[in-house]
Design a binder for these strands. Structure first.
Length: 647
DNA sequence: GTTAGGG
DNA sequence: CCCTAAC
């Protein structure tokens, strides 16, 4: 494994892959495709490709609209007097691809079930037909009565030939599909607005989507037939997972459940091969990576990067195998260059198999009208944002970070089964992006996770990072990151693992072999991380400003908690301190000339109200003291007054 | 835990 | 947005 560092930029191992020119959102998604183990995203991508292709070919306006950009969705207004095909969409054979039709109706109209006719003629060149059926899921959401899901199942042979074609290239003209799937909405749906979503439509992306050439890490994911097959299989059974039932969920919180990225490295084996006793006691460090082979290398099987939505399985992502371009590629292993000062009396192998990394708590908010597709993208971007920032690995033993990176596994007690049970790995984002994604505010606005996640911060590790990290015996232990390049092998340069807090958004890998343990180690006794990074910047939208102003007008400027509760109770990412700060800047903004203002312009009307409220509460704060509601000011005059003075 | 204010 | 003193 060769992690190279970029000049002055610290550890960049897990930054975004360099993907050519493409919309950011598209780029972000890239890496995921090949990384999903269970194939879900894989399926999505395939579908996306097909859909994209078909849409390209499609003549309908809906189709062409949808194929633009990332195609968040197309709204088709159904006319009463006609039954017209709403969409033409490609379906991934063998999978339960959903074609999401949400019907937005008021609750009183719920009895009027939408009818979705699926005219299927999804057949391969050989004439194998796919089964197409629709399922209508009744939503418990008031505004989305029904969601129709389209399920397409193709015979095995169909699937395979299909996939084979896919494999040859997404741009192939032949997908083995003769016909398209056409959906008709029943006339009974008159005058209800029907959203036709293309949740999975995306641009095809290159096969080697997670690559970084040059001096940086190169992660190369390549699918093979096996993957595709597995992919489809899994998809078939993952229906429920993708059920759009709750697509209108107002706030999806704890979407990914686990509070930390803890997960379980499955420590299958802990085998100590006693065959390497000839290893020298003192091994001279070699900074040249891996020229010196040895069996002392760590074996990490490569897996996919993500484990469903909720999981980043890492072992692939970080494994040496993934770094296919390292000069040492093909080498059986590398001498643990960093072990120079380590006394190795016998060489043993400890195998680590990290099953997956889960994603920490993510807060996501989307409008009720958001599509499942956009939700997925949102989650995806949130996840990618975290990953892009780069990560570090820490090792926890029985919940406690192993601080001494110079110790050998053996010395640390990691070479015996007992301890392996309580071993956990931890990924820490270099830049915190804990929960940056949200789409509250006006629903019309695109659910665009703006703000590219801040560029990875330079880490404390910076100076300590090695130019190359050998795929040595401790590849996932920070010590390697820190030590390799330094002769002072014993200098306690380890700062990472030392302090990690439960809310440090760390990703922790836990032994999967023991479910019970999967929850244990991280929660306690972990110290605070030094890598407490800033939250991502999230500019207030006009809508939010409006809400804030309104609340302050009523509550005054000294009750931020109340303001929060009243106006931002469901916006978890806005703390009352945030609101207070925002108000502060609002007041400032209102006072300066429009030319000096930056960011999304706040309507002057709002700024006027800000000044008005500010003035009012400045004067009335003292009087108000104990009282509460009475303060509901009528600052109309005050405002005007103020404005005239100010302007 | 909240507020208020400087950074 | 962060940090923290002060309550």
């Amino acid at each position: 494994m060769v992690f190279k560092k970029r000049a002055n930029n610290g550890f960049t191992g897990f930054q975004v892959p360099v993907i050519p020119r493409a919309p950011r959102s598209a780029r972000r998604r890239g890496p995921l495709k090949k990384t999903v183990d269970d194939g879900q995203v894989c399926a999505f991508e395939i579908l996306a490709s097909i859909a994209g292709k078909l849409l390209e070919e499609g003549e309908s306006s809906a189709s062409s609209n949808a194929s633009e950009g990332n195609s968040q969705g197309v709204i088709v207004e159904n006319r009463q007097d006609e039954v017209k095909p709403l969409i033409t969409e490609g379906i991934h054979p063998g999978s339960c691809i959903e074609s999401i039709f949400t019907r937005e109706v008021a609750s009183e109209n719920r009895d009027q079930k939408p009818i979705l006719h699926a005219k299927s003629d999804f057949s391969s060149e050989k004439g194998e037909k796919a089964n197409v059926k629709t399922e209508t899921v009744e939503s418990d959401d008031k505004y989305v009565s029904y969601t129709n899901r389209l399920v397409v199942e193709a015979p095995e042979n169909f699937r395979e030939s299909y996939n084979r074609k896919i494999k040859k290239g997404f741009r192939s003209d032949k997908y083995g599909l003769k016909d398209r799937l056409e959906l008709y909405m029943s006339p009974s749906l008159v005058d209800s607005k029907v959203n036709v979503k293309y949740p999975f439509h995306r641009k095809p992306f290159p096969t080697n989507s997670f690559t970084k050439d040059g001096n940086d890490i190169k992660l190369d994911f390549r699918d093979d037939d096996e993957n595709f097959i597995r992919c489809t299989k899994v998809c078939a059974k993952s229906k429920t997972f993708r059920s759009p039932r709750r697509m209108a969920h107002r706030r999806i919180k704890n979407l990914l459940s686990s509070k930390y990225w803890n997960v379980a490295p499955k420590l299958k084996d802990c085998e100590l091969s006693r065959s390497d006793l000839e290893v020298p006691l003192y091994r001279k460090r070699k900074t040249s990576h891996g020229s010196d082979k040895s069996r002392h290398n760590t074996i990490i099987k490569r897996r996919k990067f993500f484990d469903r939505v909720s999981g980043v399985t890492s072992d692939g992502g970080f494994s040496s195998e993934s770094v296919s371009n390292s000069p040492e590629k093909g080498n059986d292993g590398h001498k643990p260059s960093s072990s120079a000062k380590i006394q190795v009396t016998e060489e043993s192998r400890v195998k680590f198999s990290i099953k997956s990394f889960r994603i920490p708590e993510l807060y996501i908010e989307v409008p009720e009208t958001a599509t499942v597709g956009s939700l997925k993208r949102t989650v995806m971007e949130a996840v990618m944002a975290i990953i892009e920032g780069g990560m570090h690995v820490g090792v926890l033993l029985q919940g406690e970070a192993i601080g001494d990176d110079n110790r050998t596994l053996e010395q640390t007690g990691l070479s015996c089964n007992e301890n392996l049970d309580t071993l956990s790995f931890m990924l820490e984002p270099s830049s915190i992006l804990a929960s940056p994604v949200s789409c509250i505010g006006d629903p019309s606005s695109q659910c665009d996770t703006s703000e590219p996640t801040r560029s990875p911060e330079t880490l404390a590790l910076d100076s300590g990072i090695t130019d190359t990290i050998d795929d040595s015996n401790l590849p996932i232990i920070p010590g390697n990151l820190v030590e390799n390049n330094h002769d002072s092998a014993y200098s306690p340069t380890d700062t990472i693992v030392d302090k990690i807090t439960p809310d440090s958004k760390a990703i922790v890998a836990l032994p999967a072999s023991n479910e019970a343990l999967a929850v244990v180690p991280l929660s306690q006794k972990i110290k605070r991380s030094e890598f407490v990074h800033r939250r991502t910047r999230r500019p207030f939208s006009v809508t939010e400003v409006e809400a804030l102003v309104h609340a302050v007008e009523e509550l005054g400027t000294g009750r931020w908690r109340d303001v929060k509760l009243r106006a931002f109770d469901n916006a978890d990412h806005r703390t009352y301190v945030d609101l207070k700060d925002k108000w502060k800047t609002l007041v400032h903004t209102a006072k300066i000339s429009p030319q000096q203002r930056r960011g999304e312009p706040v309507p002057q009307e709002l700024l006027d109200r800000v000044l008005g409220a500010h003035a009012y509460w400045s004067q009335h704060q003292i009087k108000q003291h104990g009282k509460h509601q009475s303060g509901t000011l009528k600052i109309t005059e005050a405002s005007a007054e103020r404005v005239s003075i100010q302007v």
